[in-house]
Design a protein around this nucleic acid. Structure first.
Lengths: 229, 229
DNA sequence: ACCTCTATTGACTAACCAGTTAGTTAGCTA
DNA sequence: TAGCTAACTAACTGGTTAGTCAATAGAGGT
């Protein structure tokens, strides 16, 4: 009994982690939660595992976030916000159209490569029909400027007579993202099925160049070449 | 007691489901399992739900498939095999290159649209790092011919001087699939973020045409147009 | 010194869920 | 028709898991 008390006192004095630190606890939880949801999806994620990896009592998670689903939503909002922060596409609007589109394609690809968690969470969220993202109040406003940027670059390129005239900004955005996304999101099954290591540095660099070629090859081509008409 | 026996007899004679039918039971299980895994993913799927939807005792599932994971693998094999069956790309090898590629693009897109389960299961499987697909003995052989078909069409198009010369078959396949896949796999989040109904008939048709334009626009363009130099 | 708010904890619970046990029943074959 | 095998079932189990309860403890204000 005395020994126990002494030990508890020693623990408190020495290795105890700076008593209280709400911000740090909260961010450790979010961090561990992101890893957990990214690795196991929403249903596969375990709150106990998040607690132990963030070195926090499980109930603290409920204290801060209320439920597993609310925690997932917080993680989701963070990752989508990060995507838009990285894009700062406003800067591209002033560039020559070819250069602006090229930069957009490259930065989209690069961000996907640098943040694998993003693609995995996007997949997870779509498995759940996007129902959690739809609950977010903070995400949608971030996306309003993106299509505008593409539209501006497209219009200028068309006015200059170098881009084909029948391009829709939404379709172009979906293509730019899709060309990068599929290659990364389905890397595991594709590497195995095609018997190529799609994660290799060489392959990733090659892919980056290919995507630029596809998008610009399309935009710079004439509308009727090869069309079904 | 007598009444009970009579009732049991009547049930057996009339509304009882043809006493035994292993093939039917097995396929009802597989069917319900496909829906369940497609709707909830692997961790979110519930064996009890599969049992009740297939109107079968839960243990029959274990009798036939052994485990939840083995059942998932059976579903996965079925859906991937279906994809390759539908593609019958051998037929395309004889066509003029532009026509062959166009058909490949269109049929890939059409099959994705017609079989939403396919895309969802591909996403689910990649969340799990493709580890179940890799256990399959039956799937990989089906994919060996696909790249050959693309290669043949590419070579002929290049020999005829109409396709650009720097195209890799793997990259082209990834682009054809990716252009269709992302649009469909992330339809829920994208529709909400972009404030467009991507599931509408008009949008889907438009997307199909756009993808053909992108792929052919790229292939028919000259390698150096807009390249970084 | 005391009070109050909030961070933090350990122990608990009720529900859930994959998988099992211990059988019964139908149909085929010798 | 007896015996065997596979289809099929009901009830159960043990481990897991999201979420709760009841309390302690630190920090800032008064």
């Amino acid at each position: 009994m005395v020994a126990e008390l002494a030990e508890a006192g020693a623990r408190k004095a020495t290795r105890h982690k700076a008593t209280r630190n709400p911000e740090a606890s909260r961010s450790r939880i979010l961090n561990a939660a992101r890893n957990e949801f990214v690795s196991h999806g929403l249903s596969g994620a375990r709150v106990d595992r998040i607690a132990s990896h963030s070195a926090v009592n499980k109930n603290l998670i409920y204290h801060y976030f209320g439920s597993k689903e609310a925690l997932y939503l917080a993680v989701l909002e963070g990752i989508y916000a990060g995507l838009r922060e990285q894009q700062h596409d406003e800067d591209l609007r002033e560039l020559p159209p070819v250069e602006g589109i090229r930069r957009l394609v490259e930065s989209t690809f690069d961000h996907f490569v640098a943040t694998p968690e993003l693609i995995r969470l996007m997949s997870v969220e779509n498995i759940h029909f996007g129902e959690y993202l739809k609950r977010s109040r903070s995400i949608k406003p971030l996306y309003s400027g993106l299509l505008d940027t593409i539209e501006i670059l497209l219009r200028r390129g068309q006015a200059e007579g170098i881009f084909r005239s029948d391009v829709d900004a939404v379709d172009l955005y979906l293509s730019i993202s899709g060309l990068a996304y599929f290659f990364l999101s389905n890397q595991h099954t594709l590497s195995w099925l095609l018997e190529r290591d799609l994660a290799s540095r060489r392959r990733v660099n090659k892919r980056r160049q290919h995507i630029v070629d596809v998008v610009l090859g399309y935009l710079l081509g004439s509308p009727l070449a090869g069309a079904k008409g």
